[in-house]
């Protein structure tokens, strides 16, 4: 059976196509102003990659903040539940997941089957999430993908950024730069602050050793290394941490079909 998971996040739209238990194709694109268009686009691209059409899909589950506007989805499930499922698919021993997305961070605990048992999310604003890292990278004229590496090559250890508000954090960064601080040191301060906040979020749900990081910030080695140091744990990160939610959605789609015991007519 062929199922799809579509994850429309605040910054990125992801799609994964699963044949039985094997990934056939996946894709990610920036989320545009029209979330359902983004869903259509990322799904079309992924289907094309697999040489399939929408009619070949037996069941589709949507997730992410745009989960309710995916026009062709059969069911929507929250990204919290899907990330646990996806992380469990990649790393079956996982008990704690940290999803660091564009607009928020989620600490999730799950049981041996990948079912959520507890979760916590950062509050409303995007402080300490992908969007704020983008703003920092932009301000320091550093490509986002290089940010983590540069932040590990520092001259002087600055205090972590103390402002949770991105707008204030910008002012703080400018202050450091005006005082002649090196760019890398400031980047380190931003990564350090994020790692610190994430740690308290994880503490809220209860720390577990079998640990997965998903979401875009999992690609930032500067943040990941610092989280690992603070927690004294090694994080498991899959080959593409941004598709974990979409993959979880596709796994749910398969499980729903198996439960129903029949193929859905589209």
């Amino acid at each position: 059976m062929i199922t799809a998971g579509i994850d429309i996040g605040s910054l990125t739209g992801k799609a994964v196509i699963l044949k039985d238990n094997e990934i056939l194709a996946w894709n990610l694109i920036p989320t545009g102003p029209d979330s359902s268009e983004t869903a259509q686009e990322v799904t079309d691209m992924t289907l094309k990659g697999a040489g399939l059409s929408l009619d070949d899909m037996d069941y589709i589950v949507s997730t992410g903040y745009g989960r309710v506007v995916v026009p062709f989805s059969d069911k929507n499930i929250t990204e919290i539940t899907c990330h646990a499922k996806g992380a469990h698919w990649f790393f079956p021993g996982v008990r704690m997941i940290l999803d660091m997305g564009g607009q928020d961070c989620k600490a999730i605990r799950c049981n041996a089957t990948g079912k959520v048992t507890n979760f916590a999310m950062n509050d409303k604003c995007a402080a300490g999430a992908g969007r704020s890292m983008e703003i920092m990278a932009d301000l320091l004229e550093t490509p986002l993908e290089k940010m983590g590496k540069l932040s590990l090559d520092i001259k002087e250890r600055l205090a972590p950024l103390s402002s949770t508000c991105v707008v204030f954090a910008r002012t703080e960064v400018l202050g450091h730069l005006h005082e002649g601080a090196h760019k890398n040191d400031v980047l380190a301060g931003a990564c350090e602050a994020l790692a610190e906040r994430v740690k308290s979020l994880l503490k809220r749900v209860g720390i577990e050793a079998d640990f997965v990081i998903s979401g875009g910030i999992a690609k930032n080695i500067g943040v990941v290394k610092r989280i690992e140091e603070k927690m004294g744990l090694k994080a498991n990160i899959c080959f593409e941490p941004q598709i974990v939610g979409a993959l979880g959605a596709a796994v749910f789609a398969r499980e729903i079909l198996e439960k129903k015991g029949k193929r859905k007519k589209r």
Partner: peptide, 23 residues
């Protein structure tokens, strides 16, 4: 959950409530 009395930001609230019910 922390909520505004004027109920702004319901989108994020919905995600948490839905995830809790799924759990």
């Amino acid at each position: 959950l922390e909520v505004d009395h004027s109920l702004s930001g319901l989108g994020q609230l919905k995600t948490r409530v839905q995830a809790f019910i799924e759990m």
